[in-house]
């Protein structure tokens, strides 16, 4: 994800570099001075991952990224703070470097659905759950680790943690699911 993001901005960087080094009048120079750091910031200054903590007292957010947990501050100018909720996947853009990073914009990280998979809304799922699996011809799978399932799950759900599914394949899906075109619905602890 991070790599893709970097690659996406490569043309932008080249463009920014041109702005800096290219021949230009005073007006262009002034623009370049503004634009170049902004472009570089967009390319590099992004943290994507799961928010693990947010403190309003310390104005600090911790976010679990690929290589570990990072810390970033926020201030009154930070937008989208509501997306920095513990447990939510977020994209945090920041200014500043190293230990003085300040979040500028926080966006929710939307999950990407694999090809051939569509989303189901709460309303639609409620309807199915109320009807029951056999009546509404669906099979609801809780993909979280088993202890989470035991604590509390959506009614009618069956526990098949994602790691189990990798090992056992379709063994726990209804045997006639393909034949009956049974809807398989998967959920976990949020949009991940």
């Amino acid at each position: 994800m991070k790599k893709k993001r970097l690659l996406k901005f490569v043309p932008f960087l080249v463009f920014a570099a041109f702005l800096v080094s290219g021949p230009a009048g005073s007006l262009h120079e002034a623009q370049a001075a503004e634009q170049a750091p902004a472009a570089a910031a967009q390319a590099k200054n992004v943290l994507t991952g799961k928010v693990t903590g947010k403190s309003n007292k310390a104005k600090t957010i911790t976010i679990e990224v690929k290589d570990g947990t990072e810390m970033v501050k926020f201030d009154d100018n930070t937008t989208g703070l509501e997306h920095a909720a513990e447990g939510e996947a977020a994209i945090i853009e920041f200014s500043g470097q190293g230990k003085e990073r300040v979040a500028t914009v926080i966006k929710p990280k939307l999950a990407e659905l694999p090809p051939g998979v569509t989303e189901i809304s709460t309303e639609e799922l409620v309807k199915l759950v109320n009807q029951g699996p056999s009546e509404a011809n669906f099979f609801l799978v809780d993909s979280r680790p088993a202890p989470r399932y035991h604590e509390g799950h959506i009614p009618n759900a069956v526990s098949i943690p994602v790691d189990d599914l990798k090992k056992i394949g379709a063994a726990r899906f209804p045997g006639d699911a393909k034949l009956n075109n049974t809807m398989l619905v998967f959920y976990c602890g949020g949009p991940t």
Binding site: P114, I120, T122, L125, I154, A170, M183, L184
Partner: peptide, 22 residues
Amino acid sequence: MSTASAGLAVKMGYKNVRVYLQ
């Protein structure tokens, strides 16, 4: 976890696969 599982189901040949993202 849910999207990964749904992706696996598609690979197994299931055609009617949904994810409850919330």
